[in-house]
Design a protein around this nucleic acid. Structure first.
Length: 955
RNA sequence: GCGGGAGUCGCCCAGCCUGGUCAAAGGCGUAGGGCUUAGGACCCUAUAUCUUAGGAUUUCGUGGGUUCAAAUCCCACCUCCCGCACCA
């Protein structure tokens, strides 16, 4: 049978919509509030996005079947800048992006025309993504949907950010950003040519030397080398500028002057100073020491300030430049000797000299200097120690000393930050070269605050985190986190209420919004006019602060409505499970916790976080440039939603990256097809008297229920699915074998029961086709509304599991012997144990082993200590073998054997073995007990029989 | 540099937290058989090595250690991947 997936899926989707199953309001049942990070709509979603939502949907559907009132809502995150950049590029007619929209995303031409407006882009993909979610069968309550730029949400964010500020969580400061001087805008990856992220290196510093009334600023990554400075380098061919910077006059290159204009400084160029005029003079160091200024061609005016300080003992370039001058008998240079200040194991006193000689550097323009410099800088940083020339920093490791030296110089106004673009040049899409701008008065969330961190740690400690091994990562993130800018100057979003030049940054307006799902329903149905929502309203509903009258008056609502809304919030909150991709661990998920603890009281803190890995395509990372992105809706059309859901879930456990490939989809499709076929064959029937194999398979079904339920609870969905579809299959095929060999035809009632259980458990994973199967099984309700199969101890017949295991292992042993000996059997004889003493010893050993003891010596001692089994010291061989038998059985089986009644092996085997044995081996099998009088035992095998391990003779 | 992971029987990937059910699940591939007009799909069997009695041997990155017992716990080493922010 070939399934028409789209037809089945549409059929059931419509039924769900009709019955409004997923529209959730408070009721008397216990609730679960499941949320997923909402999408940013600047492209259609692909299979990778589908993973997080699918896992959450399975979770939601599972809880629903377990009898919870589950709220699973969705919103759309419009806040941010990427669509702005897209719109600009589309307006400029950039081929690359237009081709992508047309050929990869198949956006209709008339829609593309509207995309010059950023919101139209978001609107388009919003609808696209939403349609995909519906087609995937996500059980979302769409009545609560919103975007982050609707008035109600904006009122909510204003309230959130104001509350944070009043709680002292927001501070002001300055911050460097990548900046386009032409557009007068910050630039991010989306705004640059080639989509490069402008990387800012703020470990770069500027050390100030004096030169008469002027300041000579010099940039360095290694402030500690100030102690080893012997001279400055200046390019004699460059004309430097005199520049007033606040109250000082600096000598810097023109390029540098243009950079510092973007720092928080008053900058004005007032004149020239040719490099040639500076060369040969002296500058003054922080400690009053005079050092000569020497010419060097390697000094580039575009780098740093265009002036360089020379540390010839530790910088290969400086050393070589000095040598070059000395070779020319330069007068000032000839007097200079390197000053070593760092001791590093593996290097001698003058490491720079050592490296230049090792690499055979010819002169200061030699390319080998770059490698040498890199090597030495790293070694000195990780292994080096400052020496006695470094005053109070003597004996400090460079790793730690550097920061101390920097702080000390900074205090004494000898040093300033000089952030640079690490990956310069970066070009804005407009063509201009980007610079670093220091933004004044930036607003920060003070995530560095220790008290705040401590609260978050408390929350994490009490929270369930799946998978649990990601907990340490959260701990690290909390430790490492510091102030984070929470406002931007451009993009869509909500304005800061107290400073309208700024917009609340997108990662800061998406941290507690789950609370808004309980409000959006009332906004969407018109009960509430969002424009009227006030602080008092939110305070009352979300924080239980103030009184209902004030909240009602200020927001022009009735007290009844207000109290209904408050009850709804209090019913659904806290969030019971937050699903997200692992890329959000370091930011969103941690901020989510931080903001909750900063705003809400403890009982409203999140209960659980579930983190999943990403999706790979045929083993490779998905990327637009590689062209291996499959839009989700395309995949649904081609393969069906359920196969995609199953393929995503079955390809990897939670945190592992899932590999999506077509083979796995086809495999799943076939598996499901045969299951569906079987379901349509089976009819509800009466279950007659149970035979041994019936009791066994029903017991196995119970075990499966336990196993699957546990796995889903821990979000080990792959394991659960595997159990439902595959592992159980091998039990079923054994059952079929047994039934066939007995020639039974009355088992369809049992199979119907078993498959009902399987289909119900499959339903959260593959909801559409499970409904179809459920219907085929003859049910007239929806499986998504039916109850999750429940384990019942009474249905678990441990004796039947044991006896069936005995049968299987006996068959297995016979097959094994036949395989090894390659004989064709004419007759098979089985001898079961009937020796009471052996049984007694067996049980005694079983008890000892279940108690945790497995050592032969200890077991023997215990046996001898008991007068009933003391005789066993005469049969160490038997003891050893029994221990070994038991070793190869699961704890579960061992416990069962211990707890349940023993059964008559002979009776069972002689009754059950012949039919299956005849089918498997084609000969009669006779069963004797060791003590039978009429025993046929020509080879004396019978005495080898042990409990659960009969002896076998094949002729 | 700071931090987080990973290395399993041809490939992908479970198992490790909680040691014995582990020669190690499942999928793919491969080989043989069945079914089929053929192909596909499906089903069965095999797939470390040795073995004429249900067994033995060597295996889970490398080298040590703990233990009656190690893929699993501890130590060291090797190799590989990912994140480092104002960006969704």
């Amino acid at each position: 049978m070939t399934i028409n997936w789209n037809e089945i899926e549409t059929k059931w989707r419509n039924k769900w919509i009709e019955s409004k199953d997923f529209e959730t309001n408070p009721n008397e049942k216990p609730k679960k509030f499941i949320t997923v990070a909402y999408p940013y709509p600047n492209s259609p979603q692909h299979i990778g996005h589908g993973r997080t939502y699918t896992l959450a949907d399975v979770h939601a559907r599972f809880y629903r079947m377990q009898g919870y009132n589950v709220l699973f809502p969705m919103g759309f995150h419009y806040t941010g800048t990427p669509v702005l950049g897209m719109a600009r590029r589309i307006q400029a007619g950039e081929k690359e992006i237009l081709d992508g929209l047309r050929n990869v995303y198949h956006v209709p031409e008339e829609d593309i025309k509207t995309f010059v407006e950023p919101i139209k882009i978001a609107d388009y993909f919003h609808e696209e993504i939403k349609s995909g979610m519906i087609e995937m069968g996500y059980s979302i309550d769409w009545r609560r949907e919103f975007t982050t730029i609707v008035p109600g949400y904006q009122k909510f964010i204003e309230w959130q950010i104001t509350t944070l500020k009043e709680n002292g969580k927001i501070i002001q400061g300055s911050h460097p950003v990548g900046w386009c001087p032409k557009d007068q805008n910050p630039v991010s990856q989306h705004d640059t040519m080639g989509d490069v992220e402008p990387k800012i290196d703020d470990k770069n510093f500027l050390v100030k030397f004096s030169f008469g009334e002027f300041v000579f600023p010099v940039t360095t990554l290694r402030p500690e080398t100030i102690f080893g400075v012997t001279n400055l380098w200046v390019n004699p061919n460059v004309t430097y500028k005199k520049v007033t910077v606040d109250n000082e006059t600096w000598i810097v290159s023109e390029e540098c002057a243009n950079k510092i204009k973007f720092f928080e400084k008053e900058v004005k160029i007032i004149g020239d100073m040719p490099g040639s005029e500076i060369v040969g003079k002296y500058a003054t160091l922080y400690d009053g020491r005079e050092i000569p200024i020497l010419p060097a061609e390697f000094v580039e005016p575009g780098m740093g300030t265009g002036l360089v300080m020379s540390v010839p003992a530790h910088a290969p370039k400086d050393y070589q430049a000095l040598m070059d001058l000395k070779a020319k008998n330069h007068e000032l240079a000839s007097k200079i000797e390197p000053i070593p200040i760092i001791v590093t194991p593996g290097y001698d006193v003058f490491p720079a000299k050592q490296i230049c000689e090792k690499l055979g550097v010819a002169n200061q323009t030699d390319d080998k200097l770059e490698d040498g410099t890199k090597e030495l800088y790293l070694k000195e940083f990780t292994d080096g120690k400052l020496n006695e020339k470094c005053a109070q920093f003597n004996n400090e490791k460079v790793q730690f000393g550097r920061d101390k030296v920097r702080a000390w110089l900074q205090e004494n106004n000898h040093l300033e930050k000089f952030p640079v673009l690490e990956n310069a040049p970066v070009h804005c899409r407009c063509g201009a070269e980007c610079v670093v701008k220091i933004l004044n008065n930036q607003w920060f969330l003070n995530y560095g605050d220790e008290e705040w961190k401590e609260l978050a740690r408390n929350c994490f400690d009490e929270m369930n985190i799946l998978p649990s091994n990601i907990r340490t990562e959260f701990k690290e993130v909390i430790d490492w986190l510091h102030e984070r800018a929470c406002a931007r100057q451009q993009g869509l979003g909500t304005k800061l209420p107290w400073d309208k030049d700024w917009i609340v940054e997108s990662l800061s307006d998406s941290v507690i919004y789950m609370a808004y799902y309980t409000i959006s329903r009332f906004v969407n149905d018109g009960t509430v006019n969002p424009e009227n929502l006030t602080r008092e309203f939110f305070d009352y509903i979300l924080l239980d602060k103030g009184d209902v009258k004030l909240a009602a008056d200020t927001s022009k609502l009735s007290e009844d409505v207000i109290n209904t809304m408050k009850k709804e919030f209090q019913y659904f909150y806290p969030v019971d499970s937050r699903h997200s991709g692992r890329d959000l661990v370091q930011n969103h998920l941690t901020f989510f916790v931080l903001n909750h603890v900063a705003i809400f009281e403890k009982k409203l803190w999140p209960q659980e976080i579930v983190v999943n890995g990403s999706v790979m395509m045929d083993g490779a990372k998905m990327s637009k440039s590689m062209g291996n992105i499959i839009p989700l809706r395309t995949a649904i059309r081609e393969h069906g939603a359920d196969p995609i859901r199953l393929a995503i879930i079955s390809s990897a456990e939670l945190l592992q990256d899932a590999d999506f490939n077509m083979e796995s989809v086809y495999g799943i499709q076939n598996k499901i097809e045969s299951l569906l076929e079987e379901c349509s064959r089976l009819k509800k029937g009466t279950i007659g008297e149970l035979q041994a194999e019936d009791r066994w398979i029903l017991s196995k079904t119970q075990s499966m229920i336990v196993h699957v339920t546990e796995a889903v609870e821990k979000m080990r969905l792959r394991e659960a699915l595997q159990a439902i579809l595959f592992t159980f299959e091998s039990d079923l095929s054994w059952y079929h074998k047994r039934v066939q060999s007995k020639g039974r035809e009355d088992v369809s009632g049992i199979l119907h029961h078993i498959n009902s259980v399987r289909v119900a458990m499959l339903s959260p994973f593959a909801p559409h086709v499970a409904e179809e199967m459920w219907e085929n099984l003859g049910n007239d309700n929806l499986v998504s509304k039916s109850a999750w199969p429940e384990f019942s101890k009474e249905k678990l017949d441990s004796t039947s599991i044991q006896s069936e295991e005995l049968l299987k292992s006996t068959i297995n042993d016979i097959a094994n012997i036949l395989k090894v000996t390659k004989i064709t059997p004419k007759k098979i004889i089985i001898y079961v144990n009937s020796d009471d003493f052996k049984s007694k010893v067996y049980h005694k050993i079983l008890g000892i082993m279940v108690g945790g003891q497995n050592n032969m010596g200890i077991v023997m001692k215990e046996l001898i200590a008991d007068p009933e089994t003391a005789e066993s010291k005469k049969m160490p061989d038997y003891i050893q073998k029994v221990i070994k038998d038991l070793h190869s059985e699961s704890e579960e089986i061992k416990t069962m054997k211990l707890e349940s009644d023993s059964f008559d092996e002979k009776e069972f085997l002689s009754k059950e073995l012949s039919s299956i044995g005849k089918k498997e081996f084609g000969v009669e099998i006779s069963v004797y007990s060791e003590s039978d009088r009429d025993i046929y035992d020509p080879k004396g095998k019978a005495r080898h029989a042990r409990p659960f391990k009969p002896a076998i003779l094949i002729e």
